[in-house]
């Protein structure tokens, strides 16, 4: 996998002196009079695993969806690998792209949804091959082999011909992860990937995600799983009321939070 960047995993050296792979600059979004995001800025380096935590309504999911432009921000820019999402840079200005060209940009990012959103009319293998074959226009024979390998890795090698409706929630989410990984994206966005799962199925999905992180995949994960954040995150971002309250290593944010808002949230969640 070419786009997975090798790197040390763990909490040892969270700040790497790298050009950020992802650079969200002062992103704002409102629905009507409700300000969901207020000037949110975040940088993610290649190979980094960043977990975003916070109470519901904090704007975590909206922020994630602004990154691959499923939501169009009202203000601010999102730079991915030196390109402004949704724009073309010319003469010092940003010109908005057509939906078609934006789609091309999106192909370099991957996303995993809370409700899986697998294509119900395609088999497991069809779901995973859809992007590489239709979007990247790669030969279906090589894609087929790769897709089987990816599915093998998420532990679903024996389910390739099943339809999503025949799978458990945990299996579906693992297929969704395989679908995103098969595109060899620069980074993966996870939008509460285990929130819709029965408790006993959460572990199998988190295991797959931890495996990706160990391989050096750049990941931005909105999650309520504090255990996962503690184990896997290079950096934890706490969001509340449409802004980032504080961020830092697991120790800094989860163990010794500075802000009262963070402390209150953690007390409630970890109680």
């Amino acid at each position: 996998m070419t786009n997975i960047h090798p790197g040390t995993v763990g909490q040892a050296e969270p700040q790497r002196p790298l050009r950020p792979l992802l650079d969200a600059v002062r992103v704002s979004k409102h629905y009507g009079s409700n300000e969901v995001l207020k000037d949110v800025s975040l940088q993610v380096a290649a190979g980094e695993v960043v977990c975003i935590i916070g109470p519901s309504g904090a704007g975590k999911s909206t922020f994630l969806r602004c990154i691959n432009r499923l939501e169009v921000p009202d203000a601010g820019e999102v730079w991915v690998d030196g390109q402004a999402m949704g724009f073309e840079e010319r003469d010092g200005k940003l010109y908005e792209l057509t939906e078609r060209k934006l789609s091309k940009q999106r192909a370099s990012t991957g996303m995993v949804f809370q409700h899986f959103n697998l294509f119900p009319h395609l088999t497991v293998l069809g779901n995973v091959m859809e992007g590489p074959v239709r979007v990247q226009k790669r030969a279906s024979r090589t894609v087929d082999a790769e897709a089987r390998a990816v599915l093998e890795r998420v532990g679903l090698g024996d389910k390739i011909d099943s339809y999503p409706s025949q799978l458990s929630g945990g299996q579906r989410q693992r297929v969704a992860i395989a679908r995103a990984v098969a595109m060899k994206p620069l980074f993966l966005l996870f939008d509460e990937p285990t929130s819709a799962l029965d408790p006993e199925l959460v572990g199998e999905v988190l295991t797959v995600m931890a495996g990706l992180a160990a391989d050096g995949m750049t990941m931005l994960v909105v999650t309520h799983e504090m255990g996962f954040a503690r184990e896997v995150a290079d950096r934890v971002v706490f969001m509340a009321d449409g802004g980032i309250v504080e961020q830092g290593t697991v120790d800094e944010v989860l163990v010794n939070p500075r802000e009262a808002r963070t402390k209150r949230f953690l007390e409630r969640v970890l109680a």
Binding site: N68, R106, S108, F119, G131
Partner: peptide, 19 residues
């Protein structure tokens, strides 16, 4: 969510509709 999933893997509006 189906349209969003198709968007997330980079499908164009026409591909989303047709596929």
């Amino acid at each position: 969510g189906q349209i969003e999933a198709a968007q997330s893997i980079g499908e164009t509006p026409l591909q989303r509709m047709w596929r």
